[in-house]
Amino acid sequence: MRNCIPKLGLILISTSGNDLLKLVGKRLFYTLRIEALLFEPYSINELVEIMKSRLKEAFGKNIADELALFEIASFVKSTSQNVRHAFSIIQDAIEVSDENKVTVEVVRKAIEKQMKLAR
């Protein structure tokens, strides 16, 4: 009869940087068979490549200067380390841009805009 009971699994995902023990409590933690998968933050070059690829896919052409993408990647790496944040900045930069070309100047304006909203 016991063979009929399916094995269940539990996946816990944390992006808070807190220790899993603190999140679930000692009692539950020690009853789990933990297998941790750690994902390292993207490097600046990886962020740039991801942005290039997605922009090419979305627009069919290069709409951003490489220096502008490095500016975004540097900012994101030093703040949130979240690739979604990079795309949020690109979206704001496209809105700020007069000619749908993302330049370093346009990126700086978009970052300023986001920093003002965050305050």
Rank of each mutant, 00 (worst) to 15 (best):
S16F: 01
F39S: 01
A68W: 02
E40S: 07
F75C: 02
E40Q: 13
D65P: 11
L10S: 07
Y30R: 14
R54E: 02
K22H: 12
V102F: 10
R27E: 10
M51I: 14
T15N: 03
I50D: 02
I13R: 08
L10P: 10
P6V: 04
I111M: 12
E40P: 02
T15H: 09
I13F: 06
S74Q: 15
K22D: 14
I90Y: 05
K116H: 14
L67P: 06
K22F: 09
G17Y: 00
E71N: 14
L12P: 03
I11Q: 01
V107K: 06
E57G: 15
S43Q: 06
S14N: 09
H85T: 07
V102K: 14
N3T: 09
R108Y: 03
E66M: 08
R108H: 09
M115E: 10
K61W: 07
T15V: 06
K77M: 02
K52H: 11
R2Y: 12
I63D: 07
E40W: 04
F75V: 10
G25S: 10
E99M: 07
K113T: 07
L55Q: 05
A64T: 05
Q114G: 10
E105N: 11
E99F: 08
N62I: 11
I44F: 02
K52P: 00
S97Y: 13
A64Y: 02
Q91S: 11
Q91T: 09
R33I: 13
A36H: 06
N18A: 04
S97N: 05
R2E: 00
L67T: 12
Y42W: 07
K61C: 04
S80V: 05
F39T: 00
I13M: 10
A36W: 09
D92E: 11
V83W: 12
K101Q: 03
N3M: 12
I44R: 15
L23I: 09
G17E: 00
N45G: 04
L37C: 04
I34W: 15
K77T: 12
T79G: 01
L23D: 08
R33C: 09
D98N: 13
L21A: 11
E57N: 14
S43P: 02
I50G: 00
E112R: 13
F29V: 04
I34Y: 12
K77G: 06
M1F: 03
V106R: 00
M1E: 08
I111Q: 02
Y30L: 14
V76P: 01
R33E: 15
L37T: 00
S97P: 01
